[in-house]
């Protein structure tokens, strides 16, 4: 299936050749998936929606938080909600790039080298604790994420469509982790945090976990084909000039007020996420409210608020909030 696409078409991870479904259908689909995931992940409605809009918008998601709050659970739930290929890679300091992308091995029978696809050849790739792997391995994900293809021994292979990376990283034990390079961080459409559940919700979590874990019971509610068509529909969502102007002004504001502001790629990501948000709302055009809903998770991790500071973090989120207050909605 994937081989049938030429590299260019595949490079467009949103599957231009697929017939788009109608916007209401796409919205319904997204709603079903959200509901489905909520049966597993408690009290994370907003985060789940954000993951969904990123998936619809053709982006990848980075989940960052302390261990044990359900990052992996969320990623698995998303993957399981579709009936596509799901792979998981536990990133460790000794993980090699080929462990991710795949390797050419010599087939004794055929006397030829044969490509053994790595875990990256999947519809949903869960890159667990991505910041534990060394930069070289991390960067092997780079090409895959941006271009939906991998190159091994000079040969370029397209990845399946859709291809979604859901990475998690630990916010603790920083000294034992490799900070993600700026370029790679920029390639994640969103960085999300889950946070601890509330008291009642935590009890709820415990209730569900006793006996059998609900993740084992989760079933796919949409096919990969549905997802492709929903993403095609999302790509067709109307973005009027005032909205583009608004997004541009937001990006410019961050550049004027931070050491490192939002790149044009960031602006594009914001628009695509906003399109996803519009679909989730069953609407075929983007309104500034969509942009505002998506702005913080899409923009904050691309901003270095102060010179010498780290990317993202509280100052960057504050700056995004301030941009939303100051930049006039026309």
């Amino acid at each position: 299936m994937t081989d049938a696409h030429d590299t260019h078409t595949v490079a467009d991870s949103r599957g231009g050749a697929t017939t788009a479904m109608s916007i209401p259908d796409a919205g319904d689909l997204a709603g079903r998936v959200v509901e489905n995931i909520e049966t597993v992940v408690v009290d994370q409605h907003d985060t789940i929606e954000h993951v969904l809009t990123a998936v619809l918008g053709g982006g990848h998601v980075l989940l960052e938080d302390v261990p044990g709050v359900g990052k992996t659970m969320l990623a698995r739930s998303v993957a399981r909600s579709f009936d596509g290929d799901f792979r998981r890679v536990q990133f460790t300091p000794d993980l090699l790039p080929t462990d991710v992308t795949g390797v050419n091995v010599f087939n004794e029978k055929t006397r030829e080298f044969e490509f053994q696809p790595g875990p990256v050849f999947a519809n949903v790739l869960l890159a667990d604790e991505i910041n534990r792997a060394p930069p070289k391995t991390q960067s092997s994900l780079l090409e895959a994420m941006e271009e939906a293809q991998v190159t091994a021994d000079g040969e370029t292979r397209a990845l399946p469509d859709p291809f979604v990376v859901v990475a998690t990283q630990n916010a603790v034990e920083r000294d034992r982790a490799y900070e993600l390079p700026v370029a790679e961080l920029d390639r994640f459409m969103k960085k999300l945090r889950l946070g601890y559940p509330g008291r009642e919700q935590e009890i709820d979590v415990l209730d569900r976990a006793v006996g059998g874990h609900p993740i084992d019971d989760i079933e796919a509610v949409a096919s990969v084909e549905d997802l492709r068509r929903a993403r095609a529909a999302t790509a067709g969502v109307e973005v009027a000039r005032p909205v583009k102007e608004y997004v541009t002004e937001l990006a410019r504001y961050t550049r004027d007020h931070a050491a490192l502001g939002v790149s044009p790629r960031g602006s594009i990501s914001l628009l695509r996420a906003s399109q996803g948000r519009a679909v989730l709302d069953g609407r075929d055009y983007v309104v500034p409210d969509d942009v505002q809903a998506e702005a913080e998770p899409v923009l904050a991790h691309r901003i270095r608020a102060e010179a010498g500071g780290t990317l993202g973090g509280e100052p960057a989120r504050t700056l995004v909030q301030r941009a939303l207050q100051r930049v006039a909605v026309e």
Binding site: V287, P288, Q325, A328, V329
Partner: peptide
């Protein structure tokens, strides 16, 4: 209406 406030809000 605040500058950054959308019409919906």
């Amino acid at each position: 209406r605040e500058p950054g406030e959308t019409v919906r809000d």
